[in-house]
């Protein structure tokens, strides 16, 4: 405002020096009157409308602040929800990882158990097979011994029966008698 008044004073001073610009600039009196009128109107408005304007500004500020606060609150809430969702997702991921790990361990344990069982069964089968083979070998050996014994006996019987004449029989009986005489009573 002061700048404007100073400017008007300058213009009034300059008016005395040059009339050429009168066509452009208003009359100094008019200007002063205008300025005064303006100030009066401005002061009246300021005096009367300051509270209203203040309330309007306040209301406007409030109108702007409330959505902002609500928006901020919504943002905070959303961020809370987001954090919660993230925690839930993280928890779900951990749970999924835990389930996967548990499944992996279970599968590993089942695999180890199956392998151990298969190995035990294979070992048992091997043991039984070996026993069966040993039994078969023993049986075959026994049969072979029996066969050899029977054949040997048959051969010996043929040889003996052909070689036992009266003299041999008498010698056998004599020996039998000697053995009887040597027996303890």
């Amino acid at each position: 405002m002061l700048k404007l008044l100073a400017h008007g004073a300058l213009l009034a001073a300059a008016e005395g020096e040059s009339r050429g610009i009168d066509l452009v600039l208003p009359n100094m009196h008019e200007l002063v009157a205008g300025v005064i009128s303006f100030l009066i109107v401005f002061g009246f408005i300021w005096w009367k409308g300051r509270g209203l304007i203040g309330r309007m500004v306040t209301a406007r500020q409030e109108a702007v602040r409330r959505p902002l606060a609500e928006a901020e609150e919504a943002k905070v809430k959303a961020e809370g929800l987001l954090a919660e969702r993230r925690r839930e997702v993280s928890g779900a991921r951990d749970e999924a990882n835990r389930i996967i790990e548990e499944g992996r361990r279970s599968a590993e344990a089942a695999r180890a158990e199956i392998l151990a069982k298969a190995k035990a069964e294979a070992d048992e089968l091997t043991r039984r097979s070996r026993e069966a083979i040993e039994a078969d070998k023993e049986r075959a050996a026994a049969q072979m011994r029996d066969l050899v014994a029977v054949l040997s006996l048959e051969l010996a019987q043929k040889v003996v029966s052909g070689s036992v004449d009266a003299a041999v029989q008498q010698a056998l009986v004599d020996r039998y008698i000697e053995e009887l005489e040597g027996m303890p009573r």
Partner: peptide, 17 residues
């Protein structure tokens, strides 16, 4: 009291088996 050759051969067979 068995002093027969059959008995002795039988003993031989059992020993072989």
């Amino acid at each position: 009291i068995d002093g027969s050759l059959r008995h002795r051969l039988e003993g031989l067979r059992q020993a072989l088996q």
